[in-house]
Design a protein around this nucleic acid. Structure first.
Lengths: 210, 210
DNA sequence: AGTTCTTTGTAACCCTTGTTACTGTACAAC
DNA sequence: GTTGTACAGTAACAAGGGTTACAAAGAACT
């Protein structure tokens, strides 16, 4: 575990802190598609992302969903951070986008490290900063872009996060992420295919040029 | 200044910190409608809101605007916080919604206080937490609500923040905040008036029941 | 009072997106 | 093979909301 930890966080954290993380953190493996945090959960551990990717979803009372953003190696979930510090319920759902390795830290350590390690403090602030910016980008997307543009951005993001030009997803799944209907996605995807920007197969979409 | 500072923040900050703030902070008065921060500004001071209210706006490259949220007494701008710590440009615009009193803190103190005062650390974390939640609420609003619901929420929020059942605004101004057109707002407002929920006057809207 | 500017009301129209419904096709299970 | 199910394509229609255009009403100024 220490080896992976150093690879992902070695440039950020002091050696002392890395060592402490190694002592109190527990390595967790999560398979793609598995749920990590559900809305309303009380969060007792803070995850550090070592490998893989996580997708963060929002849901309203009617069950309507929306993809907020993806997390990658080196990220932590600032929403969870927030919950840990405030001891409140999770406002979001976290689902493994790929097979993912996490180190889970007991929240008691949070407070301690915050006063003890400058690098930890900086990391927490930097995480908040990054997440606020992700949220801003999400707002830009849904407020200022049309569905066709949003779909293109989604395909790009998803290809990047999965490091694969072929996206494994059904039209229905995409529709859930973008909070629209399957028919709309099929329609727009077909148009993208006609324009030669993607190739459609069953259960997958190949990106040609976007 | 110390008196006002204590009233707004006395329950949060230690006495030592209050005193330090008094020494290095400078009181600023901003009239309603005045701009406090513009997009792209490098922020060199961090504002603590003593009195009044500030509205935080987002704008995209085409000049389309959107109201993100309001700040009230006891709040600070986490986006600015973010900018200060990261030394990056502001992503948002801040405009005084009412006559407003601020205490401006030089950012050099941020780092210092963060390690020195636990109450300051907690305040900063709590600010991030609050702002993330505001952003989530904003996302919920634009993603899951129709324009009529958004308009009602806007009127409620605006009445609350101005502590006045009569909202001073033209239809055009509302349209800018909600990123829609004047005609749409006029249409929906008229419907609300017919339903007996508001009363329309020139340049103002009186809320009856929402 | 007359002129001008700002604000509001409203109609007509269009585009995007959401909905319903039905068809065809791939794929797995039997 | 046949059957069943999930997925995708498409048409037709409805609704929300954005656009254009014009009229009417206040307010401000002369």
């Amino acid at each position: 575990m220490l080896q992976e930890l150093k690879e992902a966080y070695g440039f950020i954290f002091e050696d002392d802190l890395i060592e402490e993380i190694g002592e109190v953190g527990s390595l967790q493996q999560v398979a793609a598609g598995e749920k990590i945090i559900e809305i309303g959960d009380y969060v007792k551990m803070m995850p550090l992302l070592i490998e893989g990717a996580i997708k963060i979803m929002r849901e309203d009372k009617d069950g309507d969903e929306l993809l907020l953003y993806f997390l990658e190696r080196g990220d932590t979930c600032a929403m969870t951070l927030s919950c840990c510090l405030g001891q409140t319920k999770s406002e979001i759902r976290a689902i493994a986008e790929r097979d993912t390795k996490l180190i889970m830290i007991p929240i008691e350590k949070m407070e301690e490290w915050t006063s003890k390690y400058k690098s930890w403090r900086d990391f927490v602030f930097e995480s908040y900063h990054a997440r606020l910016n992700e949220m801003l980008e999400t707002i830009d997307t849904i407020a200022f872009m049309n569905m066709d543009q949003r779909l293109m951005k989604y395909l790009q993001d998803k290809a990047k996060i999965n490091q694969n030009e072929v996206i494994a997803a059904t039209h229905q799944q995409i529709a859930y992420d973008l909070h629209t209907s399957r028919v709309v996605i099929s329609r727009l995807l077909k148009k993208l295919e006609i324009d030669g920007r993607i190739k459609l197969q069953r259960n997958s979409i190949e990106i040609m040029e976007l």
